[in-house]
Every structure is written in structure tokens, then in C-alpha cells.
Design a protein around this nucleic acid. Structure first.
Lengths: 197, 197, 197, 197
DNA sequence: AGGTAACCGAGACGGTACGTCTAGTCTTCTA
DNA sequence: TAGAAGACTAGACGTACCGTCTCGGTTACCT
């Protein structure tokens, strides 16, 4: 489950007017709408206020900043875990899918923005890493199955392998010096597996 | 040569009052000073104006924004290329040095900021990639020497290997889910070389 | 009543945080202070920001520019309407007072600045004319009383007379080719009254 | 002759390269061109530089600022002095012509700008007053002829009459509270003459 | 014929103001 | 006490204009 902020959480158990589900939904919906039209830097809390009709005060009561809102929106996207019974196939498929998504889906670009904001906001960085971990788990699961099937030795730390695997992706994704092609996915997986077989 | 912006560059070909070396130097120096005290988001062109005594107009005449100024400052830092005669040693040393630098030198954190700004500023992204390329070249040189010495096969594209190599670094550097330890450097290099030997 | 902007005006009808009286007062006070030290062109919104401690954003929320702020400050100065029961005396007294004020009160010079800004800012020109009208009304009142007392015929349009009256003032005030002396006031009134008796 | 700046003046009698007539002419011409398109505040020395091809340095060598340049341009416009043999006719004609000119000729609006700049630039104010005096002389000439013909008594100071006369014009011109109509011209003259006959 | 003083263009420079923008907090009223 | 409305501080942004300056180069006058 990739849920990062499954419920608006700090729902106070105590008395007083309870949190409005409407307000929460309106914010999420408005942010979703803005994500279709604007890139990350051009989305602002003010615009979410305008689009959602929810007041700034309310927004800041439940989220620390725009990064948190967007992270929550993004977190609800679900991911599929390839499971073909073959390690190389699984990994290649996973990487290929990621590449395709961030190459075609304009909306996926927003992850860049989240990385940005995580750089100098330690609190958000922690939350963002939770999100990253949930995605990363997919790779770790695949690797574990591979080890169980004996396709790769258990000598190597899956975490390290995952770092190489995702590193290949993030590096090109954020620096943009070369495209995220299917060939790159295939070659990367091959090379990594070669090194640990 | 790691120089990215070796001369203040847009030296106009013809007449007119020449660009002031003093002003240029003052900006660079002021930026350097600010880099010691503040992190990237807290540095602003306004502060550089204040610190340098150079007018805003002049700054914007020569740089598009703070990212450009800081890139120029950072670009002048020079890098050493390990050359021990042994591929694994060279690569490990290179990665270890990078890790040590970004882990200890507060100033190096600024690279995170540059990556940030490159995400949604295509013009700057191009310049930033030039910088990245100049750094990356070090790895490519090492790999080429390794191939010439027959330590690794020439079948594998050095660019791809460099992507894995730097990917391992950038991924942990930007996501921060795990530390950039010497062990991580060693293991990464080993695993990559295993895969291409 | 010489009040032009009796209340901070654009009082929003409905809810939301009300306009800060403190901020408003601080701006007015700061502007008043600046008017003591600087002449019109050397007063800037930036300086009012600095002096008042009120943020730029807030200032621009309530005033279009420095001319509007200063107009509001100036508008609160009240004027006395001479009423001696004699037309010539009233007019002479009015003109003499105006002359004395703009000749001695450094602060009154600021009106020149407002005239300046009104020249090429139609929106402000309208506001400034409201101010002018409120001052001009004093002369019109005096003339009306004179007509009621039969001191001058009712054939002549008071507005026209006021134009001559104030024209004599503004012309020398703005062009500065001759001083605004008591003699000039006396002679002007005499000549105008001669023409309409 | 209304010439205010008849020659670029400070032509040094000594040796050295003489002032370029071309540069002078180019500035005047460019300013004339700009006056057709832009209003006073939107004309800047920088734009004159651009339009004329004359360097800033050269411009500032010969003029103190944009007000001086424009004053020189404006000063070359010549004026006609009505001389019908009848005082009232002359004055009415003069005022009517002025009103028509400033009401229709967009270019004449620039005088407002000059008045503006004269307010807080004493040195320019002096020059501007010279210009004003040359215009004002027309009225004084007419009045003198009227006195010589015995149309008005010589008791009244022509200067004072001229102040009333031009005051009526400048007041409406600069404050803009009422239009400069023919009727206003006629009534003004009548009222003034009434007072001094 | 040479020297030289003053010119000229191009354009960089410091200074300063402008008006807009965003983030995140605070205040009042209403439900 | 939640929420809507919206005012508030702080401070960055990039542009504009002013008047001064620094170049390299060009006259015209005077010896």
C-alpha cells in the first residue's frame, strides 16, 4: 500500500466541529486539476485556495505546504508489481514502465518538484522518503523472489542492488542528459544482474 | 579541464566600455561568501547585490539568475582525476572522494539547489548539464583507460557504465534515504565491474 | 467639510479579516514624517515601507501609488473659511492665507508633486480633482454669500470667478515667475471684483 | 523670437574638435519623433539615444536632462501675436488659439511635463521660466498697445493682468477640472477687461 | 605635417524605485 | 471550534531610468 497520508490523520478525537471531509476532498480535487494544467513551480497554495474554494487557513491546518498536498495526491496513484516468475523480466518490465510513465505522463513530472522541495525541507524530506520507500519496495520484492528462486545469490544486499537500479533511473530523470529509453532499461538490468549472478 | 565558464564569456566583440573585472570579481566573491553562511534557497540576487556592492542591473546584465551565478562559482572548483593504473582503485577513489566532499563540505550542498533550479528552467538545465558533463568526463576517462588496459571489455558503452556509477551517487545524494559511505562506494564499484568484466 | 477620504474608504462590505487600523495609521504617520524631511520626488513607496514597517504588499493593497497616499495625508489638513460679512475681505483673506501657507510651510510644497503626478495618471487626476474641488468650494461659498448680500451681481458664474481667483494663485505657484505676496492677493481680488460688480 | 536655447551655447571658443551639428540635429529630430508617439513620462533619454543614434555621453554633454532637450524642441515652435487694433479681440484671439492648440495638439501636452520637471529642478525651472516669459510677452505687448490706444487705464500693472489672463489658462490646463472652451476664453477676457477699464 | 584637445559611438556602471509575487500567519465572522 | 474570507509581514523578483564613467577612435584647429 503506497498510502503515505492515508487519512488526513490528525483527526482530533475530541469535541468541537469535526474536520470537513468536503474541504479535504475539494483540495485534493483542485490540486489534481491544477496538476493537469500547470507545472510544479506554477502551482501555489494561493491557486489551490482559489480553485478549491477552501480557505488558506484550513489548508495550512492540515498540510504543511504545497509539497505535502501534492505528495498526498501523488501517493494515491497505485503501482503494479510485475511478477512473471523471471527476475530479469520483472526488473526490465518495472523499469520500462517507470520510464514510459515519466516520459509520457506530464503529470509525473511533478515528482521532480517534490524532489526539489525535499532538498531543503527536512520534515518534508522524511515524508517524501516514505513515499520513495513504498515505491522502492516493489523492486525489493522482485529481488527477494529472485533470490528465493535462486536466480541471484543471496550474498548481495538487495538494498544496494535497488540503489543501482533506481539510481540509473533518477540520474537520467533529474539531470536529463540522456533519454529514458527501453534500451537503457534493458541494458541497465542486464548489467546489474551480470554483476550479482 | 573542468572549466565551464572559463571567461566571463559574453565578451562583446566590439567597442563600448568593457566589462568591469571588478564588478565580476565582486559578485563571485560575494556569492562565495554567502555560500559559506547560507543554504541555496536563502541566497538571493538581492543579497548578492547587497554583499557585492554591484548593482542589480549589472548582475542581470551578465547572469540570468542566481542559479547562473552560483553555477559559475561552483564551476571554478577543480577536480582531480584518480589515476592509479588500476580501474577498480580509480573508480573507488573517485566515488569515495565525491562522497566525502558532499558529506562534509557544507558548500557542496549547493549542487542540490542547482539540480532543483534546472528542473524547470530549460535554459539553465542546458548549462547545468555542461557542468555535469565536465565532471562526468572524469569517470569516462578512467573507464577508457581501463578498457585500454584490458581490465574491462570494450563491449560495454562507457556512457552506460557512467550512468550506473553516478546514478548510485545522485540517487542517495538527492533522496537521502541512505548515507554516502565508503562501503557504499566500494560495493557499488565492485558490483558494476562484476557486471562488465 | 474638507474631508476627501474620510475613512480608509474601500471598506469591504463582508467578512474576512478587517483592515488593520494600525497598518493604516503607521503608513499615514510615516508619510507625514517623511514629508517633513524630504520633498515629493524623494519620497518613495520603498521609504514609506521602511519608515512605517508596513509591508509593501499591504500598502499596494490600499493605495495605488505614493501620490494616493500623500493625497490622503494632505486631505486631512483642514481649512478655515473666512466669513467676515464682506466679500472683498473674505476673498482677500482666503487668498492671503493660501499664499502664506504655500510660501512658508515646506510641507505644502508637496501639492506641486501631486499636480505633477496627476498630469499623466488619469485615475489619480480624478481623485486629485476631488480634493481640489473640496478646497475650491470655500471660494464658491464666499462668492455665493456675496451674491446673496448683493455685493456682486448674480449674472456672473461663480465657477468662472473661482477660476480667475485660483488661476492667479496656481499660475504663480507652479511657474514661480513672481512671489505670492499679500499685495498680489489684494490686487487680484480687487481686479476680479471690479470686473463683476 | 522665442528662442530659449538659440545655440547649443557653451561652444568653447578654443581649439579642439567642434561640436557635431549632426549629433545635435539627430537628437532634436529623434525627440520630435518621440513626441509624436509618446507622452512625456514615457520619453526617456535612453529612448532618445536609441532613436537618434547619438550616444548618451554626447547628449549629456549638451543638455542637462530630457526636460532641457524637450524645452529646446518646444521653444522653436513659433507663436503669432494677434494685432487687430482692438484689445478685447486680440486677447480673446490669443487665448482661443492657445486653448485650441493645447486641446487638439497632442504634442502640446508635453508642456505639462515640463511644468512637472520644473517643480523640483530649480535650474531647469529658470530656463523654463525664460520660455514662459517669451510666451507671456505676447500678452504684455497686446496690453501695452491697448494702453497706448487708451482702451484701458495705465493704472493697472500689465504684469498683474497677464497673471490673471494666463492664470485662467494654466489653472484649467493643469487641473483639468473644466474644458478650455472658446466661451471660457471670451468670458475670461471680458471679466478681466471689465475690472480694469 | 604633427600634435593635441575636444569630440563621438557604444555601452557598462551604481543607485534607486517600481509594482508583482509567494509563503505562511493572523484576525474576524459565521455555522 | 472548524471553516471561509481575506489582511498581514517578509522579502525576492526582474525591469526601468538616471546620470556618470570608460573605452577606442575621430576630427579640426594650431603650430
Amino acid at each position: 500500500m503506497p498510502k503515505v497520508n492515508p487519512e488526513p490523520e490528525p483527526t482530533p478525537p475530541s469535541q468541537g466541529r469535526p474536520r470537513s471531509k468536503d474541504a479535504h476532498a475539494a483540495v485534493i480535487e483542485a490540486t489534481n486539476a491544477l496538476l493537469e494544467q500547470l507545472d510544479y513551480p506554477n502551482i501555489s497554495v494561493d491557486k489551490i485556495v482559489l480553485e478549491s474554494g477552501v480557505s488558506k487557513r484550513t489548508i495550512y491546518r492540515w498540510w504543511r505546504n504545497k509539497a505535502n498536498i501534492i505528495l498526498e495526491v501523488i501517493s494515491s496513484d497505485d503501482i503494479q508489481e510485475p511478477n512473471t516468475g523471471n527476475l530479469e523480466k520483472d526488473l526490465t518490465q518495472l523499469l520500462t514502465r517507470i520510464f514510459k510513465r515519466v516520459s509520457t505522463d506530464k503529470r509525473a513530472q511533478v515528482i521532480k518538484g517534490l524532489v526539489m522541495d525535499a532538498q531543503y525541507d527536512p520534515e518534508f524530506a522524511t515524508q517524501f522518503r516514505d513515499y520513495i520507500h513504498s515505491r522502492r519496495q516493489v523492486c525489493l520484492n522482485i529481488l527477494e523472489r529472485g533470490q528465493q528462486r535462486g536466480e541471484i545469490s543471496t550474498k548481495h544486499d538487495p538494498a544496494l542492488i535497488a540503489d543501482l537500479f533506481y539510481g540509473a533511473y533518477w540520474y537520467r530523470f533529474l539531470i536529463g542528459h540522456a533519454p529514458l529509453t527501453d534500451a537503457y532499461a534493458k541494458d541497465t538490468v542486464k548489467m546489474i544482474l551480470n554483476g550479482i549472478r
